[in-house]
């Protein structure tokens, strides 16, 4: 009996602890110190806010609601209103990190958004804070190279070849991420780093369907420090696929114009056949009238 009581106490204690932990989930979540201090290399301007808004509405509103409206979905732990004071008290780096990495029910957006797009969302969230002043990184003395990118496809090994130069000099150790542009989002092909020759290889699934010529719209981003570049182009690296209309051919479900021929013939032949006979009789009634005099 005594033993039992002890267990009960322990369970009660645990439950209380869990409850408290739950309530504080939001404030408990701390980004690593290094991430916490991270600053946006971009100036939060109207364009960024606008783009951030689109991304936010597509990906965040369903849980967090509209910032400042306190209409987030009741969940445990509560997702919180990004417009609220407690939320805004976090550093840019902290918000950036949490969106990127996720935790528990908060999805990880690392694969969905590139860094610059994540900063767009931060810019949008910050636009609800009148008192916010963007802290910008100290750039003095930093030389930022301008990258040029060249894309090609090596069909022998099914790899996307990314070459990165800055003023014709190959750039090593540049992080490259390659995406296929879908209708509603971009699909991560893979991430890689350039070698000493400034070349990075990204695996391409040969079964990926392209257009008739096997072309597909790819987007490659390259970053190293503050240097970044982006290139989007059509590349013949996918499986050539013929696209068919979903309504090709004649079916029972087609529109009347595309009805099966046999059905149309059957219908019209029988309807017109019967009505022809009926009209023959109706007009024949005149003959009855004519025949009133015995011949």
């Amino acid at each position: 009996m005594k033993n039992n009581k002890g267990y009960n106490l322990i369970i009660l204690f645990c439950l209380c602890f869990l409850a408290v932990a739950n309530v504080n989930a939001q404030s408990d979540w701390q980004a690593p110190a290094e991430e916490n201090e991270k600053l946006s290399p971009f100036l939060f301007d109207d364009d960024m806010v606008l783009e951030g808004r689109v991304a936010y509405e597509n990906s965040c509103t369903s849980c967090h609601g509209t910032p400042g409206q306190d209409d987030f979905t009741p969940m445990s732990p509560p997702p919180g209103d990004p417009g609220a004071e407690a939320f805004q008290a976090q550093s840019d780096g902290s918000i950036f990190y949490k969106i990127k990495m996720g935790r528990g029910t908060m999805p990880k957006f690392e694969d969905a958004f590139a860094d610059d797009e994540l900063w767009n969302i931060v810019a949008y969230i910050r636009s609800f804070n009148e008192d916010y002043k963007q802290e910008l990184p100290n750039m003095e003395g930093v030389v930022i190279p301008e990258y040029a990118m060249r894309l090609s496809f090596d069909e022998n090994v099914d790899k996307l070849v990314v070459k990165i130069f800055a003023e014709e000099v190959p750039q090593p150790e540049v992080s490259v991420s390659a995406y296929v542009m879908g209708t509603f989002g971009k699909h991560l092909l893979g991430k890689a780093q350039t070698n000493e020759l400034g070349i990075a290889y990204v695996d391409v699934d040969p079964t990926l369907p392209g257009d008739e010529e096997g072309k597909i719209n790819v987007m490659v981003k390259a970053t190293k420090g503050f240097a970044r570049a982006k290139l989007q182009q059509d590349l013949a690296m996918a499986k050539p696929t013929e696209r068919h209309s979903a309504i090709e051919g004649r079916h029972i479900w087609s529109t009347d114009r595309m009805a099966p021929i046999w059905l149309k013939i059957t219908f019209f032949v029988s309807v017109f056949g019967v009505w022809f006979a009926l009209l023959f009789i109706v007009f024949g009634l005149r003959n009855i009238k004519k025949a009133r005099e015995e011949a």
Binding site: A55, N58, S59, S62, C63, T73, M75, P107, K108, F109, D111, A112, F113, V180, G182, T183, F184, G185, K186, H187, L188, D205, T207, L208, P209, T241, R243
Partner: peptide
Amino acid sequence: PNGVYYFGDQNEDLVTNGTTKKTVR
């Protein structure tokens, strides 16, 4: 809010999750 739905184009073989925006094959 729960990442239930994916939507996309079968011709592209890509669908995008409505919550996370992740695009998968």
